[in-house]
């Protein structure tokens, strides 16, 4: 670019550069919207054919998954239920621990301890999901297997899973959502103005009463956000639980080997073709619908929270 320091000089050239710059930035910004549109389109385009071929009711509401049988059956009811129940249980375990840890970091712990705990939690958030899977498969599954052997030693009907079962997967997921829940809750707890706590303490409430009756309710919208983000992370996680949850499609009972929406895709996408492959895309579509639903709910909450803060 020419450096000319006159207000009369190349105004036209400058105007062109300005317009071009603005155009490029607008294009960049449009990329995100475009990407979402294309992803939506492709998920629908590839997931829908199987629905027409097999039938929506057959896929969603029957429970026999036998794509390789002579008379193939593509019911994914157990898979959907596994994802819902597994995620719910993981959230029920992970969220209380996460929120209480956040309370510890934001309210209770001395500064020196916070300086250790908080970076550790942030570090946990960056650990690749396969490492959680590795720990689950190497440590949790053998433990579960021992428990299984002990619990079902007299049972003749139980199918032994080697410890790869719903409980193992739920525990891995519960640990995986911890960092998200802790980080988001901590920052929302820290954002509660000091005077609210002071007022409560001045009225004679104990510190614990203040935390549970004043601070946590005040930070509630942030905590809900943390929970919803945790749900999103748990329902979308694939690699960490593929090996931990077992590999056969079963009813989501604690000691059954189960398949989640995500793991169903991972374990079969590599080699399938034809209708079987299209049904896998439909599974992806179901997962996508769940995620979009969670996203919309999240946005609603965030907006509400922003209004409440204002």
């Amino acid at each position: 670019m020419k450096e000319v320091y006159s207000i009369k000089s190349n105004r036209k050239e400058k105007a062109v550069v300005e317009t071009v710059a603005q155009g490029i930035f607008t294009l960049c910004a449009a990329c995100a919207a475009l990407a979402v549109a294309v992803i939506c389109f492709y998920m629908i385009k590839n997931g829908t054919p199987a629905i027409f071929k097999v039938g929506l009711k057959e896929i969603l509401f029957t429970s026999t998954w036998a794509p390789a049988a002579a008379e193939p059956s593509y019911g994914i009811l157990w898979i959907i239920l596994t994802s819902i129940i597994g995620t719910t249980l993981a959230v029920l375990i992970g969220v209380p621990i996460g929120v209480l840890t956040a309370v510890f970091i934001a309210e209770v712990a001395p500064k020196k301890l916070v300086a250790v705990v908080q970076p550790a939690v942030e570090l946990l958030a960056g650990v690749p999901s396969v490492i959680y899977g590795l720990m689950g498969a190497y440590i949790l599954n053998p433990l579960m297997y021992k428990l299984e052997l002990w619990l079902f030693k007299d049972s003749s009907t139980h199918q032994f899973t080697g410890g790869a079962n719903l409980i193992s997967a739920v525990l891995v997921l519960a640990v995986m959502i911890l960092p998200t829940v802790i980080n988001v809750s901590t920052s929302s707890l820290k954002a509660v103005p000091l005077h609210m706590r002071s007022a409560s303490l001045a009225l004679g409430a104990s510190k614990i009463q203040t935390i549970f009756k004043v601070t946590i309710p005040a930070a509630w919208s942030g905590i809900i956000t943390a929970i919803v983000l945790g749900v999103g992370r748990a329902i979308g996680e694939a690699m960490a639980i593929t090996l931990v949850s077992g590999s056969s499609v079963n009813a989501p009972l604690p000691f059954n080997s189960v398949r989640f929406l995500t793991t169903a895709i991972v374990s079969e996408m590599g080699y399938t073709e034809g209708i079987h492959r299209q049904v896998l895309f439909t599974i992806g579509q179901v997962l996508f619908v769940f995620i979009m639903f969670i996203n919309v709910v999240l946005t609603k909450i965030l907006k509400k929270g922003a209004q409440a803060d204002a």
Binding site: A32, A35, V36, I39, M43, G232, R233, I235, G236, E237, A238, T262, I265, V266, G284, L287, F288, I291, I294, N295, L298
Partner: peptide
């Protein structure tokens, strides 16, 4: 985009 899981 940041909420879509990586498997998708």
């Amino acid at each position: 985009l940041s909420g879509i899981p990586s498997i998708i």
